[in-house]
């Protein structure tokens, strides 16, 4: 836990980096970039929050904090009112247009 702000660290998840901790920050930045590519067609964006959480923002400015990928997808669902579908043509067209 962060002593200053009381934030708990990101929840352990099966998709966490398999290698050393030193890679963690770099992998986290890459992960946020990959998430943003996938959620951009839904007019959502993600930024890092203190290195321990994700700050998800919707098109209307609504925001939600999420700790870990599972929480992030749930938060996106809450903002959008539907699940983010990685099989949806809108997401796939977007990813294929700029591989």
């Amino acid at each position: 836990m962060c002593g200053l702000c009381g934030l708990l660290g990101e929840q352990a998840h099966w998709s966490d980096p398999l290698g050393e901790d030193a890679l963690w920050r770099r992998e986290r930045a890459r992960r946020i970039h990959a998430i943003n590519r996938a959620i951009a067609p839904s007019r959502l964006s993600v930024t890092d929050f203190q290195g321990v959480a994700y700050l998800l923002q919707g098109a209307t400015g609504r925001q939600q904090l999420a700790s870990g990928l599972d929480e992030l997808w749930r938060a996106a669902e809450a903002l959008l009112g539907r699940a983010l579908d990685p099989l949806s043509p809108a997401i796939l067209d977007h990813l294929e247009a700029a591989p």
Binding site: W14, S15, W73, A83
Partner: peptide, 12 residues
């Protein structure tokens, strides 16, 4: 892979 599969499992 983690981003893709976690998103897929959440939705489907």
């Amino acid at each position: 892979f983690g981003v893709w599969l976690s998103m897929l499992l959440r939705c489907h």
